[in-house]
Each structure stands twice: as C-alpha cells, then as structure tokens.
Write a protein that binds this DNA or RNA. Structure first.
Length: 495
RNA sequence: GGGGCGGUAGCUCAGCAGGUAGAGCAACGGCCUUUUAAGCCGUGGGUCGCGGGUUCGAAUCCCGCCCGCCUCACCA
C-alpha cells in the first residue's frame, strides 16, 4: 500500500527542501476571500482596459490543475470548489520568492493560496496576476494525466476523492444529488409532512420482502437486523396521529450488487393519512415534475437513448393486462393457473415450485413487461400474495390497491393504500409464514407489535417509497448506480 | 452463481504469428517573460494482476486464482 515511486520521491524531496529553507509547510493561516466562479461572474463583461485600471486584489485558494512554464513566467489553473481560474506568475510582476517557489517546489496537484489583481490575457482569459503565492499543502502523489483524466472505473470508485478532483461532471452529479434531496425535503415540508428518523437497527426486518444484514448488540446480547425498509415504523407514527410523515434514509439489503443495486441505498418513504394510492399517483406526478423543473427547467429529459417526458398524467396499466399484452396471453388464459405457470416455465422465470399464482404473475411481469416501460407508467393492481402490507381492492379482493412507477424500464416507486385492518394484517403475516416454510426466504416476518399498533386504530392511509439513487440516475443520465453513490460498495482491495 | 470483456511506467494506451517491453502525458536536466493539449533538446522510470505449466526462451500459449466492468438470474 505504501508505495514509493520515482514521482513520489521527487515530491517528498521538494517538500523537505522547503522545510530546510524554513518555509512553513502545511500552513493553515491563509484565508481566501474569493472563488473562481465569483470572479468569472463579476468580470464576465469587463474589457481588458477596464481590468487594467482596477487596483483591487483578490485572494483564492485551491489546487493546481495544470502548469505551463516558460522561462521566467508561468501560467497555471487553480481549481477551488466553484471551478477554475488561471493564475499568472512572472518575474518582475510577482515577488522573487513566488517565482522560485513555483519553479523549484510546486507541482500539479498542490494546494496553494494566491493573491493579486485580475487581468485578461491576449487570448482573453480572465487571469490573476499573482502578487503572492504560497504552498498550503503538498500533493505527494501526481494527479492522473491531463487529457484523458482518470478512466479506470475501478480506481474512480475506490478512490472517489481522485475522481472528484479531476472529473468535473462527477462533481456535478453529486451536486445535483444534493440539490435533489434538498428539493424533496422542501416539497414535503411545504405540504405539511413531518420529517422523522426511525431505527436502522431493528430486531425484526420488516416493511419489505428482502434478505437483511445481521449484526449483534453485545450488551443486549441479541442479533439485530439493518433495516430493509422504514415502513412499519412510519406507519406506527401514522397510528400515533402524525398523519403526514416522511423519511429520507438508508436501507440495507443483503442481495446482489449490480448497476441498479447497491447493498445500501437511499429511500424516500412518505405516508399520508386520509388518502388513497390514487392521491399518491398525483403527488408523485407533482413531485417529479417539480424536481425536473427545478433541476433542469423542464419536464423532458434524456436518459441514455431514451427521451422521457414527465408531463402528467402518466399512463396507468393493470399488471395482469400488462402481462397479457406483452406475454401474448388472452384474458381467459391469464385466469388459468396451468397456462400461467407453463408460460413462466417457458421463459425460465418460474420461482420456487410452491410459489402462489400471484408471485408467478409478478415474475412474468418482470420478465416481459418491465423493459418496455420507458415513459412514466403506473402499474396498478398487484396480486395480494406479493403485497402483504397493502389494502385489498374493494371490488376484487385477490388484488390490492397498489402501484409501482416505472421509468426507463426500471422500478422507481412503490405505493399503496395501506392495510389498516389488524385482523386482515395478521392473516397476511400468517400466510407469509407459510410461504417462508414453503421456501420463500424473503417472506415477511410476523411483527406482533405492529399488529398491536394497528389494533389501536390506524387512519385510512396511503404510502409510497421512492428509490432516490435511481431517481438521481435518471436526472443525471447515469448508467450505473455506482455513478450516483459517492463510495459504492466494492470488494476490499487485496494487499 | 452462469456467460462475455479487461488488468502492461504515476496516468491514457500500444505490443500477443513466443525471441528479454514501447508511445504520449507526467517526472528529471537545459532553452524560452501572455501560455492554455505551450514549444524545442536531452535523461531516468516496469516483479507486463498473482501462482503454476509448456518451451532453449512467455507480457504473448495452457491451467488455476485474484480484482474490475458488462450481461443474465434475485432485489429497489
């Protein structure tokens, strides 16, 4: 891990030489008052002559990103949190110690403080004429090459700090992500939702169908699960009278890693009492249009090869109808269990043998329908077997009042009218236990305290979860979830 | 877990009819006071992912392993 290549040695020598000359290395007494973007903005319209006349000096700090020497002068680009600006150092204009420092001790990658007035070069670039130049922190390792930058995706993910230094579009992605979560909070707070934080360590991993991570509490001497969803706690809060509640936080699922899955990911869940999943559809349309408007000023966006239009209302598609349409089954055939199972077998998506019919239909849906749902589509009417926490449909109790939102062939949100009948909820949990015994590892566990909470009375409520990482992927046109997670899960580096 | 592709200098990449490793950038030395992929001259730098095997000889061929990306299956 501690490697000493030639370039590191050279940089260490430069640092040692400075110390020997009495220069304070790693100084912390330079305080910049300006940023690159600020100066660019302020002097965008100023002519060369106007700049010549001003005597104001500015101070900036940042990283040297490129360096061009020639003779007794040099140019470099300084990068701070706002962007880049060019700096000019010239014997005569800059003090001798600045020229010497640059020539003998500074490299691309070093962090420096600069002060001086601005001017425009012959080619018109706004530039700071350095009247002071100080090393603030030495980069002992060289930055990646200047034109191709850092390409190796493994290094980009493992050493994200480096990726962020050299790839501006990566910085933009994460700024956009921050903006997006900020806008989501604004959206829900404006609508009188309360933001809460519920337990991440839970003694029972409920609220979704997934495999959890297990950890151990020493003092209590019990195993705890990292949550797979905050759902059951948020609905306890609905019981308590909060009525409108949301949480933006991390979920953990012990499943595969892929371009769409990271073991820990960010989920938005929100619940509204005295509402149904129909209201959630409208709220979702509003939310995404709001986000699109604020993030990019319009409701159309490009994702890979697709042009996506978020203008509401969005298409609504029954799950069973969708499977019929895309799997080529008739309305009569989809009612016949043997035909449905045969189709699943044919497509190689039949889950474990004893899987209930609803589960098989859901599998078929994933295989034949999902990839076609490019424009925003609410898929509605889910089989009750795959939705143990959702309210049954009044007209057809084999189905629940639930939807999933698909955009760009990918599930983005899951919502339903909540099941608030404690007796039905208990029966659903018991059914899940039977399925667990029949081989479904992801069947929901029985949460007795949750039943008890429902027995105190939960208002009719609708709730929804939105995968934030996938939403960010959509708005930043990122092909992989790793592109929107700062430090994605990777295998540890071997020694 | 299955399939495909990849790992060579600090970075980006060539080299793979087997004959002891190369370019550009970066580094080092020199020239150059408005450059911006600055330019010109010169120099150094590699356990060719790891371990075996075949061979007189392996970055190159074979086997195993490690790491990554893509893809399929489960999940959001």
């Amino acid at each position: 891990m501690i490697e000493e290549n030639e370039q590191i040695q050279v940089r260490k020598k430069k640092l040692t030489a400075l110390k020997e000359r009495g220069v304070r290395t790693y100084a912390n007494d330079f305080f910049p008052l300006h940023t690159a973007a600020e100066l660019h903005q302020r002097f965008a319209a100023a002519t060369t002559e106007e700049l010549e006349k001003r005597e104001e000096t500015f101070s900036l700090a940042g990283r040297i990103m490129s360096l061009r020497y020639f003779g007794k002068a040099a140019f470099f680009h300084l990068q701070d949190r706002s962007g880049q600006i060019q700096v000019y150092v010239r014997q005569g204009d800059s003090p001798p110690e600045a020229v010497t420092l640059l020539k003998e001790s500074l490299d691309v990658g070093d962090l420096v403080g600069v002060t001086g007035p601005v001017f425009r070069t012959r080619t018109g670039e706004l530039t700071i004429k350095a009247t002071t130049l100080r090393l603030l922190s030495k980069a002992l390792r060289p930055l990646p090459e200047k034109w191709h930058g850092l390409q190796d995706v493994e290094v980009r993910y493992r050493q994200r700090y480096l990726d962020l230094i050299v790839n501006p579009q990566v910085r933009d992605t994460f700024r956009k992500r921050a903006k997006l979560t900020q806008l989501i909070r604004q959206f829900f707070i404006e609508r009188d939702f309360l933001e809460v934080e519920t337990p991440i360590m839970q003694s029972l991993a409920g609220g979704a169908l997934a495999k959890p991570f297990i950890t151990h509490h020493r003092t209590l001497d019990i195993d705890l699960y990292l949550r797979i969803a905050p759902e059951l706690f948020l609905k306890r809060l609905i019981v308590s009278g909060v009525d409108r509640v949301f949480e933006l936080g991390r979920n953990f699922r012990n499943e595969g890693i892929s371009t769409k899955h990271n073991p820990e990911y960010t989920m938005l869940e929100f619940y509204q009492a005295y509402a149904t999943y129909e209201h959630m559809m409208m709220l979702t349309e509003e939310l995404l249009v709001f986000l699109a408007q604020e993030l990019q000023g319009g409701s159309r966006l490009t994702y890979g090869e697709h042009e996506i239009d978020l203008t509401p209302p969005w298409r609504r598609l029954g799950m069973v109808e969708a499977v019929c349409e895309y799997a080529g089954l008739s309305a009569e055939e989809i009612e016949r269990e043997d035909v449905v199972r045969a189709k699943a077998r044919e497509l190689g998506v039949l889950p474990y043998a004893a899987a209930p019919l609803g589960k098989v239909i859901e599998e078929l849906f994933g295989a034949v329908v999902e990839p076609h749902l490019i424009q925003p589509t609410f898929v509605v009417s889910y089989p009750v077997e795959v939705s143990p926490l959702a309210r049954r449909n009044d007209a057809d109790p084999r189905f629940v009042d639930r939807f999933e939102l698909y955009i760009a062939g990918r599930e983005l949100a899951n919502a339903f009218s909540e099941l608030n009948d404690p007796e039905d909820q208990l029966q659903r949990f018991l059914e899940q236990l039977r399925e667990r015994e029949a081989g479904d590892e992801e069947a929901h566990a029985l949460d007795e305290d949750y039943i008890r909470a429902l027995e105190y009375g939960m208002p009719p409520t609708a709730g929804e979860g939105i995968g934030i990482d996938r939403l960010v992927m959509l708005f930043t046109n990122s092909p992989s979830i790793r592109d929107v997670i700062l430090f994605p899960q990777m295998r540890p580096e071997k020694k």
